[in-house]
Design a protein around this nucleic acid. Structure first.
Ligand SMILES: [Zn+2]
Length: 657
DNA sequence: GCAAGGTC
C-alpha cells in the first residue's frame, strides 16, 4: 500500500508518547502545532487533536429546534479559536494517507473525536481503532500490533450522547429564554441541562431547607472527669429528665483499654479528591484547583489531572520519580525516609475508583521551578500525597477509659503516636494526639455534669467543592466538566457566594421551580441513568442510535407542546424572581408572587415548618404559641424566612390585642 | 444564545 499512515491522538502529549513508542520520530511543526514523523516499516505521521475539534450547531433559528450538524468548534464557540490550527494541521496532512488510525483515549468521547476527524478529512473505510489502556511504551506497542476495526458501537453511543444532550439542553434553555422574552420583551441568557439542572435543584433545595429551618430545643448534658471530656454528650427532651440524670454524678472507672490503632495510607489522588483537599486546606475553588493542576500537567510537573482513577499505572518508576523530587531541599528528608522505610520496594495503596483512560495523579519528578505560591500549594499536596500512598501504616496507641455513670457508660479517649508512617509525608489528615491523666480500673470519681439548653442546627450550606463532590457521588458530569458547570450556574446568576458558602439566588430558585414543574426529567439525575442505558444498548448492538435520538425528539416535542400555553406565565414568574416585574398577588411577607394563602413558596414552607415544630416546643419548654414565635425570631439557628413569618404572625391582630 | 464533552 502506498502513502503514509495517519495516527490521530487526542492531545499533543499523547501524540508525543505514541510516536516515541513506535520508533524514532522527528518532531515537526505546522501552524504552530507539533506533529511527529517516523518510519516503522511504513511512514507514520502522528498528529494531535486538542480534545473535541467539532461540535453540534443548530441548522436555522427558532424554537423548538431539532436540526443540527457537526461544525468546527472555532466557528461556533467563543474561546475555542485555538482549535483552528489543529484542524488546519490535520486537514493538510490527511490527503494521501493509506490508513487512518484513531488513537484517541479509549472511551466514547475519544471514539467520537477521532471519528469526526476521519469522517471529515479521511475515510472511515480505511480506518482502524488503536486501543490502549495506558500511555506506556509497551502498552502502546502492544496496541499498535493489534489494531482493531473502527469501533462503530462506541462511536454511535458517543454521537447519541452528544445529540441527546443537545436536544434537551438547547430546547429547554430556549424554552426559558423565550418565556422571559414573551413576558418582558427583553432577552437574557438562561440555561438548563442534564447535569446543571439537577445540581441547581440540589442547591436550591438546601437553600430552602436553611431559610425555612425552625430549630428544636433540647437539653444537653456533657460530662467530664479530671478535666477530660467524656463521650457521648447526652440529649434530653426536658429539663426534668436532664436534672434527674445529673442529680447523681458519681462515676466509676470500669475499664481501661489500651490498643494499637493502625491507619492505612491514603489512596492516590484523583481530581475530585485533590479538589476537595485544596478546598479544605487552602479554600481553593474546584475550578481554581483544576486550572492549576492543568498548568502543572502542561509544564510536565504532574501526570494527567482530569482523572477519576485512584490507581497508579502498573509499571510506574517510583524510585526515579522520588529521586527527582529529592532535588527540592524541603522534600529531601522525606524521600530519604521513604527509601529507608520501604527499602526501595514500593507498593502503593491504590484505591477502588477507576477511569477508562487515565491513571491517578502523580508527580513526574521534574524539579519545580518558578511556581507561583498557589501552584506550589497544589504541587506540594500532590507530591506529599504521592509519598504517603507509598508509605507504611501509621500506628497510634489508643487509650479508652470506660466510665460508668448512672448505669450508662461513657468513655474518654487518648491517642499517642507510636509510628508516624504515612502521616510524616502527608500530615494534613493525621488524627490529633491527645494525652489523658491517669485513670485506674475500679477507681471511683466525681464526674462534672453540665446541663445546657441547646437548639438543633440547620443543614450546612454547600461550598463549590462540596457541590462538585455531590455531583460525583450521584454520578453526573465528568472530571473535566463538573467544576466548570458549577461556574456556569454562577454565571447565569442562579447561585452566588457569601464567603465560601453557596447561596441560591431568587432567579435560581425561580428557574428550579419552573423546571421542576414543566421539565421534571431535566432536574433529575435519572435522566443521566437513562442516557447511560441508551448508550449501553447502542454499544451492545441491541438498539440503533437513530431510533434513540428520534424517540428523544418525539418526547421533547410532546413536553414542549404542553409547556407552550404557559410561556407567558413562566416568563412573568422569572421576571418577578428578578425583581423586574411586580406580581399581581404579592406574598404577605416578601415581594414574591403569592402561591397559596397569600404566601410565596418560600414563606409558605417556612410557615408550615413553624406550625409543625410548635408541639415540640410546647412539650419541651411549655411555651405558648406567641412565646414560641418570639423566641424563634431571636435564634441564630432559625432560617431567615422562618423568622420573617414568625414576625408577621406576631403582628397579626390576634397577638396585638 | 442556549448543553456537555474534550483540551490549549
Ligand atoms: Zn415570601
Amino acid at each position: 500500500m502506498k502513502g503514509h499512515i495517519l495516527v490521530i491522538a487526542e492531545k499533543p502529549k499523547a501524540a508525543e508518547k505514541i510516536a516515541n513508542a513506535l520508533g524514532k520520530p522527528i518532531v515537526k511543526r505546522k501552524y504552530g502545532v507539533p506533529y511527529w514523523e517516523l518510519t516503522n516499516g511504513k511512514k507514520i505521521v502522528v498528529v494531535p487533536a486538542a480534545g473535541h475539534l467539532f461540535g453540534l450547531a443548530p441548522l436555522g433559528k427558532g424554537f423548538p429546534v431539532f436540526d443540527y450538524e457537526w461544525r468546527p468548534l472555532y466557528e461556533i464557540e467563543k474561546g475555542a479559536s485555538h482549535t483552528k490550527k489543529y484542524i488546519a494541521l490535520i486537514s493538510s496532512l490527511s490527503p494521501g494517507s493509506s490508513l487512518y488510525v484513531n488513537a484517541c483515549d479509549y472511551d466514547v468521547e475519544g471514539s467520537v473525536i477521532g471519528y469526526i476527524i476521519i469522517e471529515r478529512f479521511g475515510d472511515p473505510r480505511r480506518s482502524k481503532r488503536m486501543v490502549f489502556h495506558a500511555l506506556t511504551p509497551d502498552e502502546i506497542r502492544r496496541a499498535w500490533n493489534s489494531l482493531r476495526p473502527l469501533d462503530w458501537e462506541m462511536i454511535n453511543a458517543g454521537l447519541a450522547r452528544h445529540e441527546l444532550d443537545w436536544i434537551w439542553g438547547i430546547n429547554v434553555s430556549r424554552a426559558l429564554m423565550h418565556a422571559y422574552r414573551v413576558a418582558t420583551g427583553k432577552s437574557k441568557s438562561l440555561s438548563a441541562g442534564r447535569v446543571q439542572s439537577p445540581t441547581l435543584k440540589e442547591v436550591v433545595e438546601r437553600e430552602l431547607a436553611v431559610q425555612c429551618f425552625v430549630p428544636e430545643p433540647y437539653f444537653s448534658v456533657s460530662l467530664s472527669a479530671k478535666g477530660v471530656s467524656l463521650e457521648p454528650t447526652l440529649k434530653f427532651e426536658t429539663k426534668d429528665e436532664a436534672d434527674h440524670f445529673i442529680s447523681n454524678c458519681l462515676g466509676k472507672v470500669v475499664d481501661v483499654i489500651v490498643n494499637d490503632e493502625r491507619l492505612s495510607p491514603p489512596h492516590p489522588f484523583n481530581l475530585p479528591d485533590l479538589q476537595m483537599e485544596a478546598a479544605r486546606l487552602y479554600g481553593f475553588s474546584p475550578s481554581k484547583t483544576q486550572s492549576i493542576a492543568e498548568e502543572l500537567y502542561l509544564d510536565a510537573y504532574i501526570s494527567y489531572p482530569r482523572t477519576n482513577s485512584q490507581k497508579y499505572p502498573k509499571d510506574l518508576d517510583y524510585a526515579n520519580i522520588l529521586k527527582g523530587i529529592a532535588s527540592v531541599p524541603q522534600y529531601r528528608p522525606l524521600t530519604k525516609a521513604l527509601f529507608k522505610e520501604t527499602r526501595g520496594r514500593f507498593s502503593p495503596n491504590n484505591g477502588p475508583k477507576d477511569d477508562p483512560a487515565h491513571p491517578a495523579i502523580y508527580p513526574t519528578g521534574k524539579p519545580p521551578k518558578n511556581l507561583s505560591p498557589d501552584h506550589m500549594k497544589v504541587y506540594d499536596l500532590i507530591v506529599r500525597r504521592f509519598m504517603a500512598t507509598l508509605a507504611s501504616e501509621s500506628v497510634y496507641e489508643v487509650t479508652k477509659v470506660v466510665i460508668e455513670v448512672n448505669g450508662q457508660t461513657f468513655k474518654a479517649v487518648g491517642r499517642r503516636v507510636k509510628w508516624k508512617g504515612w502521616t510524616l509525608y502527608y500530615p494534613f489528615s493525621a488524627p490529633q494526639e491527645k494525652s489523658l491523666p491517669s485513670f485506674t480500673k475500679g477507681e471511683s470519681l466525681q464526674v462534672k455534669c453540665t446541663r445546657r439548653l441547646q437548639y438543633t442546627k440547620p443543614p450546612e450550606r454547600y461550598t463549590k467543592a462540596k457541590i462538585v463532590k455531590w455531583m460525583e457521588r450521584v454520578g453526573i458530569g465528568t472530571e473535566a466538566t463538573r467544576a466548570r458547570i458549577v461556574e456556569t450556574l454562577f454565571k447565569r446568576g442562579y447561585l452566588k457566594n457569601v464567603g465560601s458558602k453557596v447561596y441560591a439566588t431568587d432567579l435560581g430558585i425561580g428557574v428550579a421551580l419552573v423546571l421542576s414543574k414543566f421539565f421534571p426529567e431535566i432536574v433529575s439525575v435519572e435522566l443521566t441513568r437513562r442516557f447511560e442505558e441508551d448508550m449501553k444498548k447502542i454499544m451492545m448492538g441491541v438498539e440503533r442510535k437513530e431510533k434513540i435520538v428520534e424517540e428523544a425528539k418525539k418526547f421533547m416535542r410532546m413536553i414542549l407542546a404542553k409547556y407552550k400555553p404557559h410561556m407567558r406565565e413562566v416568563g412573568e414568574y422569572l421576571a418577578y424572581s428578578l425583581g423586574e416585574m411586580e406580581p399581581p398577588g404579592r406574598c404577605a411577607v416578601c415581594w414574591r408572587v403569592a402561591e397559596e394563602d397569600g404566601l410565596c413558596v418560600v414563606h409558605k414552607r417556612a410557615r408550615d415548618e413553624l406550625y409543625a415544630k410548635y408541639p415540640v416546643w410546647r412539650r419541651r419548654l411549655g411555651l405558648s404559641f406567641e412565646e414560641y414565635l418570639k423566641k424563634v425570631t431571636t435564634l441564630k439557628q432559625a432560617g431567615t424566612a422562618a423568622k420573617e413569618v414568625a414576625k408577621a404572625l406576631l403582628s397579626e391582630p390576634t397577638f396585638k390585642g
